[in-house]
Design a protein around this nucleic acid. Sequence first.
DNA 1: ACCTGAACACCGTTCAAGT
DNA 2: ACCTGAACACCGTTCAAGT
Lengths: 205, 205
Amino acid sequence: VTPRTATATAAKSDLSRDAIVERALSVMDTEGPDAVTIRRLAQEFGVTPMALYWHVANKEELLAAMGDALLAGVRPPPATGPWHAQLRGVVEVLIAELSRHPAAAELALPRMLMSEPGLRLAEFTLTLLTQLPGAESQAAMAERDALQARKRAHLESLPAEVYPHVRDAADVLTNCDDESAYYGFGVDLYIEGAQAILRRQRRTG
Amino acid sequence: VTPRTATATAAKSDLSRDAIVERALSVMDTEGPDAVTIRRLAQEFGVTPMALYWHVANKEELLAAMGDALLAGVRPPPATGPWHAQLRGVVEVLIAELSRHPAAAELALPRMLMSEPGLRLAEFTLTLLTQLPGAESQAAMAERDALQARKRAHLESLPAEVYPHVRDAADVLTNCDDESAYYGFGVDLYIEGAQAILRRQRRTG
DNA sequence: ACCTGAACACCGTTCAAGT
DNA sequence: ACCTGAACACCGTTCAAGT
């Protein structure tokens, strides 16, 4: 009679960082954000709550790891067609991945410029856009200055050989000295897009 | 010696729903989301935690009310110029308001289609866009089907005289039968916008 | 290296009771 | 109508200790 089988639920895989993150995602998917607690995940593995702290520093780090796991799952489709078709491709794959874990989606966006999987995606997107500066999501737009300072510091420490475009765009991506210019780009993006679609609707419809 | 002055902090305004919401926003602004707890707000007013439950059903309702307060603060600038200039105007005012309460920004977006202040804003925006269907934020895009069903039911119960455009667009705003079409619109918006800005850059730069 | 046990300082919320 | 007191069932996390 091993002590584990007494308390462990159905799937009694070994405890590990990846296993915890994966289980946390599935708990969040099925039971919502409030259900993912350290204690709950512990009993999911038939283990003491404190056992998790060996694999994960704290809950904040766990949530970040969940976001990174989503982004790591976004693999761009094979490159065919013009740049905007490829761009549409990655965005659609990203949306598909976020749709598979709706409640965890908002964990992914703030990680885009702060983690390896996120930066891989950003670098790929910026490669397609070449000289066009990047536009952040609305959620990212509303983030604190402190966090943005950390982001910039982090971006500036990146190796230029691996992330050339991200580094080039670091200023635009984090600069908030001129807020109106920063937000203005996102607004322009929306307006121009709406106008273009309106024109097309008039043509075809 | 009244018992209140003994425990109340500096500003000892009377307890009320609006006062609680306002104080919650300022606590969130200055000390972050984790600091806004029922117990903390109670001692902010020099009162027992349970006192708040007379004015607010639970914490979830409090957070929703905070989001609504932000949206209620978004007043469109005087209408001048073409429709896209006016649209840019509201969006900029919205962004300005969200910037004043960065940590609370994400409370506002999910309330856009669920509260009176949000619907007022949506109606105004859709009036400008006229026949153009509305595009939701990425955060809203990732919401659950259950919530979308509630939204639709809520939208369909609205008086057609007050919210004609919102009602007309209810289908597009909540329909997820064809996910790809729903998300595709947002993607088109982004792509077309990026292309338009690229063209303009080539012309002027 | 990996996990346990006991404890601390918190949460949101209910329910009966006061005024 | 509006607030209190005591209690319940939870949290995340630390710290010393086990194997």
